[in-house]
Each structure stands twice: as structure tokens, then as C-alpha cells.
């Protein structure tokens, strides 16, 4: 287990308090994870997965860089291409500062999204984005440590008879692997760029 640093959040805490209130009022719809877990003071990225080139990657391989993490699946026609397009545009706009940020796309659909399937998908959006997959139990563990939610939903009209519900927010981690904040997948890329620049330059 990695060392847990105490991080003071300031604005994030306020945002978390607001979403916690919303969350408490709407949580009677079934099992869902909180977008920013109001109970958690901090958490550290923790995973071991296989990237779309076949290399094993762990969170520790990305220490020293900011990680921008997006969970999704390749058969998703709306949210996931939009999210990946947002990330690709953010990376474009960051220019040389982009080398301080590693975007990661982690599948929640390991049955279909093998590393080689991701190799034909993720780089189409941007060469810098790394697709990560693994056996279902590894994906499950990863989702738990990232405090994100995903679920297979039977849907007769979807390819292979199912679709996936999943947390669509991006998660940002600092160079020590500590969770910092979320961004929405359809956020204006320029706003994310401005925020990232301030943090990278800080």
C-alpha cells in the first residue's frame, strides 16, 4: 500500500460538499458510486493493466507526470468518442506542456476491449492517449481503487446485446499519483487546458 498524503483540497472540498448534498438527495436509485467520494480525504491511483501495445503498466510507471484518466468502452457511440475527442483537443492545445500529462483510457468492457482491440481504437483519437485493458478481475479492482462505477446493462438493441453504464468524468492525478479533481467529458477543452496549465506551472 502506498503512502497516503494528507492533501488540503480547498475548492474541491466545497464542490464535494455540494455534490454530496445532491448525492444524498438522489442516491435512492440504486448502487452508484459518488463522483467525488465525500468520505474520502484523498486517494492514490493504483492499478496494474496492459496497454494497447501489450506492455504491462502500473500507476508507478507514470509518477512524475499528471495522469488524466477516462473510463469507457470502444462500442460506445456517444460519450466515449466525445470524451476521447475532448482529451485529444486538450493535449493538442497543451502543446509542449502536454509532455507533463499522460492521458489514459481504461476500458470497462474487457470482454471486447482486449489490448489489441484498443490498439485499433484509442490511437485514432490521438497518439498520446494510452489504452489500458486487462482481465475482468483487474478491471474490477481498478474501478474500486479509482472509486468509479461501471455496470453491464442488458440491452437487446445494442451490439452483442449489452451496453455499459460507467462514470464518464475524467479523473486528474498529480505527479505523485494523488487524486486531484474531476472534469466532465464534454467540458470545453479550453477550460481544462487553462486549469491544467495553472497546475503544471505551479
Amino acid at each position: 500500500m502506498k503512502k497516503v498524503r494528507i492533501v488540503l483540497w480547498s475548492a474541491v472540498v466545497v464542490a464535494a460538499a455540494v455534490s454530496a448534498t445532491l448525492w444524498m438527495t438522489e442516491r435512492n436509485q440504486g448502487p452508484v458510486a459518488a463522483r467525488v467520494d465525500p468520505e474520502a480525504e484523498s486517494f492514490t491511483a493504483d492499478f496494474e493493466l496492459t496497454d494497447h501495445t501489450g506492455m504491462v503498466q502500473t500507476d508507478e510507471d507514470f509518477r512524475g507526470r499528471w495522469m488524466l484518466v477516462f473510463f469507457g468502452f470502444a462500442n460506445c457511440p456517444d460519450v466515449c468518442p466525445m470524451g476521447l475527442a475532448t482529451i485529444a483537443q486538450v493535449m493538442d492545445e497543451l502543446g509542449t506542456q502536454g509532455s507533463a500529462v499522460q492521458p489514459l483510457f481504461i476500458t470497462v468492457d474487457p470482454e471486447r476491449d482486449t489490448p489489441s482491440a484498443l490498439a485499433n481504437y484509442v490511437p485514432q483519437f490521438g497518439q498520446g492517449i494510452l489504452g489500458l485493458s486487462g482481465p475482468p478481475d483487474q478491471i474490477e479492482r481498478t474501478a474500486e481503487t479509482f472509486k468509479i462505477y461501471y455496470q453491464k446493462i442488458e440491452e437487446a438493441s445494442a451490439p452483442d446485446g449489452y451496453t455499459m453504464g460507467h462514470t464518464s468524468s475524467f479523473l486528474l492525478f498529480d505527479p505523485e499519483g494523488e487524486f486531484v479533481r474531476i472534469y466532465e467529458y464534454d467540458e470545453e477543452p479550453g477550460l481544462i487546458v487553462t486549469d491544467l496549465r495553472e497546475r503544471i506551472g505551479a
Binding site: S19, D78, G165, H166, S168
Partner: peptide, 10 residues
């Protein structure tokens, strides 16, 4: 997309 940031499609 619900208030927890979970998206699904139907």
C-alpha cells in the same frame, strides 16, 4: 448522465 457522473444509454 446522473448526478454521480455515471453515463448510460438506452
Amino acid at each position: 448522465t446522473n448526478s454521480d457522473g455515471v453515463s448510460s444509454m438506452a
